[in-house]
């Protein structure tokens, strides 16, 4: 990471560091996490890394990308820390940074929101189409193919092509962006 980028990222992580400052490293969160088995760094370790200001290690960690927002850790943390919110906040930092390694998860969320901005409601086909296009991974559609067929045979997929929509949510999205960019 370049120095300027490192400084920017450390700033971005500061509010999240505050969220977990009171962590006493008891490990209850890790023990409660259904996805911990797949994480190189458990949630407890991630909070330690945040506390210690290890910006790069935090961003390199896959821990938050694997969080499925089950809220078990948040419910059980003896310090009452908003841990699921902290995981989401980390996803946001990475979404902004656009780190390539997380392309899969980040694009999934971004394309979902794009469908909302255009139509107000999510059109599932358009969402999948945007997601697959953005991934530019020609093998990916095959993984979704069996599911797609099942949904199709039950007329659950709407095969209208993606369109511009009426951009009905533009004003709201615009206002949110404006407020978020004014400190």
């Amino acid at each position: 990471m370049k120095d300027t980028e490192n400084v920017q990222m450390t700033e971005a992580l500061a509010p999240i560091q505050d969220m977990v400052r009171a962590c006493i490293q008891c490990g209850t969160c890790s023990a409660s996490c259904p996805n911990a088995f797949a994480m190189t760094d458990t949630p407890r370790r991630l909070w330690r890394m945040l506390q210690a200001g290890e910006t790069q290690a935090v961003l390199n960690s896959e821990t938050f990308a694997l969080c499925s927002a089950c809220y078990s850790c948040t419910l059980r943390c003896p310090r009452g820390l908003p841990l699921t919110d902290a995981m989401n906040a980390l996803k946001q930092v990475v979404a902004r940074k656009d780190a390539l390694r997380f392309a899969s998860g980040t694009l999934f969320y971004r394309n979902f929101m794009e469908s909302v901005r255009r139509h107000g409601r999510v059109r599932e086909t358009e969402f999948m189409y945007l997601y697959l296009m953005a991934m530019k991974n020609p093998l990916l559609p095959f993984r979704f193919a069996p599911l797609g067929l099942k949904l199709f045979s039950r007329k659950k997929l709407d095969f209208r092509l993606p369109s511009g929509g009426d951009a009905r949510m533009d004003a709201l999205f615009h206002k949110v962006r404006e407020l978020e960019n004014t400190p």
């Binding site: 946001q92 979404a95 998860g105 971004r110 979902f112 929101m113 409601r121 999510v122």
Partner: peptide, 19 residues
């Protein structure tokens, strides 16, 4: 309109509440 599903919170906290 959409409530933001699980996606909005991964993109923007304010948006995830506004929706």
């Amino acid at each position: 309109t959409c409530c933001g599903a699980s996606a909005a919170a991964s993109v923007s906290t304010l948006l995830s509440l506004v929706l």
